[in-house]
């Protein structure tokens, strides 16, 4: 399962990230923010007006807004 498919509020661990499909700057930024392999994450909010993009993800005590394409690159396992 990838992060964009995770139910809202469900906690999960990032098992792996397919960095190759992301822009290099985006990959760098996500890693610097701790959205990396092994991170404990949850989806806090998803889209506006019933959409699925963008989403906010909690990682540690921080909340980060990302696009669905970023979340789709992250394989997660619910905990």
């Amino acid at each position: 399962m990838t992060l964009d498919q995770l139910d809202r509020g469900q906690r999960a661990t990032v098992l792996s990230v397919d960095w190759a499909i992301l822009a290099p700057e985006d990959a760098k930024r996500l890693q610097a923010m701790g959205l990396d392999q092994g991170a404990h994450v949850a989806v806090a909010h998803r889209g506006v007006f019933g959409g699925v993009d963008p989403l906010t993800v909690t990682v540690g005590r921080m909340t980060v807004a990302v696009r669905r394409v970023h979340a789709a690159a992250m394989t997660v396992e619910a905990i």
Binding site: E25, D26, L30, P54, T63, V64, A65, V66, H70
Partner: peptide, 8 residues
């Protein structure tokens, strides 16, 4: 397409 990564 541009990305959107932003700390809240």
């Amino acid at each position: 397409a541009s990305g959107f990564i932003m700390e809240m």
